[in-house]
Design a protein around this nucleic acid. Sequence first.
DNA 1: CGCTGAATTGATTAACCTCAACGGGGGTGG
DNA 2: CCACCCCCGTTGAGGTTAATCAATTCAGCG
Lengths: 253, 253
Amino acid sequence: MEIGRLHSRLVHRLEAFPGLSEEGRRLIAEIPMLVHNFGPGEDIVREGQSPSQCCLVLRGFVMRHKTAHPAKRQIISFYVPGDLPDLQCLVLPRLDDTVSSLGASVVAMFPHSAIWEMLARSPELARLLWRETLVDAAIARERVTNLGQRDAIARVAHLLCEMNARLNAVGLAHDLQFCIPWTQADVADACGISTVHVNRVIQELRGSNAVEWRGKEIRILNLEQLSKIGEFCPNYLHLSHEGVDEKPSSRLN
Amino acid sequence: MEIGRLHSRLVHRLEAFPGLSEEGRRLIAEIPMLVHNFGPGEDIVREGQSPSQCCLVLRGFVMRHKTAHPAKRQIISFYVPGDLPDLQCLVLPRLDDTVSSLGASVVAMFPHSAIWEMLARSPELARLLWRETLVDAAIARERVTNLGQRDAIARVAHLLCEMNARLNAVGLAHDLQFCIPWTQADVADACGISTVHVNRVIQELRGSNAVEWRGKEIRILNLEQLSKIGEFCPNYLHLSHEGVDEKPSSRLN
DNA sequence: CGCTGAATTGATTAACCTCAACGGGGGTGG
DNA sequence: CCACCCCCGTTGAGGTTAATCAATTCAGCG
């Protein structure tokens, strides 16, 4: 993957935001990036570290998780291409949980210093990056509701709907079909249930003809039904940029 | 409460951050604020709204919650004096959940426009507010772990430890004693368990001499033990501002 | 073809929920 | 000042969900 394409992944993500200027695009293109490959399960940044770089997922999947006892792992969130899993470290230096590769992944790293220089020149981009961290926060809050209020089948259904929506937004889901390199144990740790029970839940979802799910390949057969089971409402993902253009740009400069 | 004190509450919160300049303090003091009183359970901002103001808790407690069915409420987080419960709306206009008063509270409201003007003049303050939203996000992520990996007694113990740490940080806990106007039903909805079970968990905590808990008055008798039960580690609260002074201020201007 | 990690199944157990009832305390109206 | 009431906390019994333990099958891979 040549450098030009790397930047375009970031630009593409940020320009979903209607207000990105030519100047902003140019500044993004100037950020120096280094590409890294990570193997399945490999740690990218560990809890407690204060990295001097941020990473951008280019290909594959990344997860953020907290592992106290080896047998008690909570996956906080999954990250898909275009996501910035540890962007918050720019402002809150110490990382609270570990970021690891789920399956093999390709990740671009860029130094905090370069970002800060970019932000100093463009309040517009500052706001866009701030926004990215807030969408990540909104996803975490929705997960709180998912774990606190829903039963096992709803949790899994909700997670599926979310991944479908997010992958669809970056062009990685077609016809409600997508591919995530997770095991049932990963799903279990994300949903706070046991692997055995995940298995039974998946069978129940298959049995009700809501999804096809063989290994890493997932196909949603009935999105409406699945959304209902998981009480899924995509608002919290903030995939459309409602309301942002109401702000006069003068306030951003 | 006269206006001068209102601003000082905000200044006090932000100046825990070591780098706040005189200029920053002056800019904060210029923000126009309106004080509102809210009764128990009263909504401050509702899900789906796009408020044009932010609020700062001055006195009492505020909570953020999502209520699907009336009988299925998840309390995402509690906010204590000095917190900015809907600061994120500055950047992500639509609110994903509802912010309500827990017990009676006093809240200061200030217009987004004034904040934006302030931020345009002070990248330092922009960074501080960004930081505030990220700490809020970190708390939500910790709650994910709390709900996903811990059993009922650990969840409640963890919540108690968190509230103690946060209240202590703003001078509202003394000798491990504090007062929160919640009911057992509120604790239940925050921890994702039933009110009946909350009651039994509290009795268990009382029985093990970890806490005294009568109504709204809470006293932690054995913090070490309670932290162990709740697997509580305060790092995620980011109460100390580790590492921030390592950033040269030139990057902020 | 054997090995290894993942998926699947069954049986038992533990944690927690639901329903239902009762008690107590503070506020309100008579 | 008393009586009532309502909300909250408390208790008990029975039911449900999901965890745990343990074994078996399956799929990919060297």
